[in-house]
Amino acid sequence: MPIKIPDTLPARQTLEREGVIVMRETDAVRQDIRPLRIGLLNLMPNKIDTETQLARLFGATPLQIELTLLRISNHVSRNTPADHMASFYRPWDDVRTERFDGFVITGAPVERLPFEHVTYWDELRRVFDWTQTHVHRCFNICWAAQASLHHFYGVPKHELPHKASGVFQHRCLAPASPYMRGFSDLFTVPVSRWTELRRADVERHAGLEILAESNETGLCLIDDARHRSLQMFNHLEYDTTTLSDEYHRDSAKDPATPLPQYYFPNDNANQPPPNRWRGNAHLLFGNWINEIYQTAPFELAEIAAA
């Protein structure tokens, strides 16, 4: 089944060129099924890139997905055109009475700030609490995953001595988890962050299951079953060139910026990097969507009680 997004969303043309089936509103209403309703609270600066990356993964699943793009209500994006935000994004305040089968919150370039110093921290905390009564399952990425575990459990984040950047090998620790179905024992994941959560802090809280981690960059994926949330600290959704774009952006400001590890061929930033994680991204997001489909009530109004 395809993904249903606005006809004029820039992601549509990109996805159609890649062979992802994108559905028009008029075609969707003719199908006698209920699509899975997925909300995307996009906190990334370049919202167009991020919405395209995630829509690509949702559109590859065998179910019809209705994607709703959301933003923090009182925060003005400085890196995405205002007309794009006005045309395609709804403030979270506008959907507070609505329900979603799935809800994704992205990372944000604020991870080196204390949580309480982030200008929209109070609203994000309200969003986390709202998901417990209006969302069936959540998927939090990078800083949002750290923020969720801090909000619900008080788990602290720790600043790294240098940025963790590259494509690192990870171990599957819970092959029986529905989210890890089909994963190899070892698999690669892009990493791009200045902070981390530590295993010892997480293990103090019963019910948090560590699904994957790396010997070099630590925790990667946690299942918070109590809050029906999947916490991903890294970036399987990244495009092939995202780490390259980040490196060239940062090295233009600081020529001493280290290369992303295990990424550029022969550590040559002028050579195009291979994508070694695309299959893992589709597998994880497909498993998450399938778990929603298997467990969500048919009537959206029943989600609060599910």
Rank of each mutant, 00 (worst) to 15 (best):
P10I: 06
T131L: 07
D122L: 13
R198L: 13
Y238E: 14
T242P: 00
T241L: 11
Y263K: 13
C142M: 03
E203N: 12
F139H: 11
V110H: 03
R17S: 10
L219E: 12
A252E: 08
W121H: 13
V76A: 10
P255M: 04
I5N: 11
A301M: 09
L221S: 06
I72C: 09
Q261C: 12
V202M: 11
A256L: 07
E25V: 07
R193M: 09
D129I: 04
T131C: 11
N234I: 01
R204G: 14
C172S: 08
T97W: 05
T131P: 05
I38W: 00
P91I: 11
R228D: 07
L219M: 13
I65G: 04
L113T: 00
L243G: 05
Q64F: 00
G218F: 10
R226I: 07
N270C: 02
P161T: 08
K4M: 08
V29L: 04
A305H: 15
I289L: 14
T119N: 14
A200K: 14
D185C: 04
H235V: 10
I5R: 13
P274Q: 14
N79A: 14
R99K: 06
P62T: 04
D239K: 05
L230T: 00
A147L: 01
E159Q: 12
I141V: 15
S77T: 10
A296Y: 04
D267H: 04
V167H: 05
P258W: 03
A252L: 03
Y120A: 08
L236H: 02
R99H: 07
A269W: 03
I303F: 02
E123Y: 10
L230I: 04
I289K: 05
R96K: 10
L160M: 11
F103K: 01
L67E: 06
T14F: 12
F58Y: 05
P109T: 09
M23T: 08
I289F: 00
A296W: 06
D185I: 12
R249N: 09
A296T: 15
E196S: 15
F264W: 01
E25D: 15
A145G: 10
W194D: 15
N234V: 01
H151N: 06
F88L: 12
I38L: 03
F115C: 09
R37K: 15
A305K: 15
P10D: 13
S192Q: 11
P273S: 10
R78L: 06
T119H: 05
V110T: 13
D254N: 11
H117I: 09
V167T: 06
E209A: 12
A269I: 04
N79P: 02
F100Q: 05
D239W: 03
H162N: 10
D93C: 10
A252I: 01
T133C: 02
H117W: 06
I72N: 14
H134S: 14
A305Y: 07
I33Q: 14
R24Y: 07
D224A: 13
A86P: 05
K157G: 03
E123R: 04
V135I: 04
T241G: 05
